[in-house]
């Protein structure tokens, strides 16, 4: 081993610096994608695919900055000035807030891309422990007294709002009245011991801390837990009916026009609908919106008896105002549970 030589060290440093400066051959654009919690793994891979695609067609590199968090809090950050070029959130209500509260996007944003601007869909399923010791088969088992249920707080988590609405929709179909659906949903929430602020925290509570008998989850999160977090430790229970969850995407017009990134941002979202990206979505346990690609994953995604938010609740705006706003139905449920 030679003694440390300052002069050599200096030379090497200069050389390294020269290389570092010379490396960026391609011009580079940077865009920001503000997304919700469970899309991390998907977008990590998708961003690399899009970068390659853009480089091949335009000869330019795209660096996509990712931001993840609870869907509602991410929307709030964009409204308060977080510089998002595109948002890819958990539900249309949070995206619409960008129009309603800050006029960042036009009112008809959801009609601008195919499939209600939702390139991939998902649904809500139940995750139980291996062997299904509590014999949980459907939504009504969650209302049993001996079952502990994990779900995040619908006031702060987008996924949790889908969970809540899926349970409500089942109650409505099974018991036939709003009152019965209310009592049913209330019973489920009375069984919740931990109410995490965001979806990922709830997964950690169920998987890592082993709290609860059933976890109401995004289908993609449930798959992730089964495949990656603990093989053979969990089982997915597909309920008799569930909600069709459509996480929508849009460009943020005000920001892309100010920054001059509209073209690349638009291309970024449109690329989501290509066969390559649809397959990536399927790989990451999202249901591709393209039926042909969806068919390739038919053995992975069981047929579910879906209802949509428009059919049962009259759209996100009504659902939000009735159920989740302050003084809404969910607040009443919490209040009565804790009487």
């Amino acid at each position: 081993m030679h003694a440390f030589q300052p002069r050599n060290f200096f030379k090497t440093s200069v050389a390294a610096l020269a290389v570092a400066v010379a490396v960026p051959v391609f011009a580079q654009t940077t865009i920001t994608n503000v997304s919700y919690d469970p899309t991390r793994e998907f977008y990590r891979e998708y961003n690399a695919a899009f970068d390659a695609h853009w480089q091949a067609t335009k000869g330019e590199r795209v660096n996509v900055r990712q931001s993840h968090g609870g869907s509602g809090s991410q929307a709030r950050a964009v409204i308060d000035g977080l510089d998002a070029d595109v948002v890819t959130l958990a539900l249309a209500y949070d995206v619409s807030a960008l129009h309603d509260r800050a006029d960042l996007i036009p009112a008809d944003w959801q009609a601008r891309l195919p499939s209600n601007s939702s390139p991939y869909t998902s649904t809500i399923v139940l995750l139980v422990r291996a062997g299904n010791p509590k014999n949980i088969k459907d939504w009504n088992d969650l209302a049993r007294d001996d079952v502990e249920v994990i779900t995040p707080n619908p006031k702060t988590s987008g996924g949790a709002r889908w969970n809540y609405l899926a349970a409500w929709g089942y109650g409505l179909k099974k018991y036939g009245s709003e009152e019965a659906a209310y009592e049913f949903t209330k019973k489920i929430y009375a069984n919740v011991p931990v109410l995490d602020p965001a979806a990922r925290g709830a997964t950690n509570t169920f998987v890592q801390r082993r709290i609860g008998d059933a976890f109401i989850a995004w289908e993609n999160e449930a798959f992730l837990a089964v495949e990656q977090l603990g093989r053979g430790e969990y089982e997915i229970v597909v309920p008799s009916v569930s909600i069709l969850a459509e996480p929508p995407v849009t460009i943020v017009d005000r920001n892309v026009d100010r920054k001059g990134t509209r073209e690349v941002a638009q291309a970024y979202l449109e690329f989501l609908y290509t066969d390559e990206a649809q397959r990536l979505a399927g790989k990451h346990f999202y249901r591709p919106s393209n039926p042909a690609i969806g068919a390739e994953f038919a053995d992975r995604f069981p047929d579910v008896n879906f209802f949509t938010i428009d059919e049962v609740f009259g759209g996100w705006k009504v659902a939000q105002e009735t159920h989740f706003n302050d003084g809404g139905v969910f607040d009443r449920i919490l209040r009565e549970i804790n009487q």
């Binding site: 707080n153 702060t156 011991p193 931990v194 109410l195 995490d196 602020p197 706003n325």
Partner: peptide, 26 residues
């Protein structure tokens, strides 16, 4: 927030409630 159950009325501390309100645009 990591160790509390964050259940309204039972294990929800005031700072968390403030955050939750802000996240809902309130």
């Amino acid at each position: 927030i990591f160790i509390s159950g964050n259940l309204p009325f039972r294990t929800e501390i005031t700072p968390l409630l403030i955050v939750a309100k802000a996240e809902q645009f309130d």
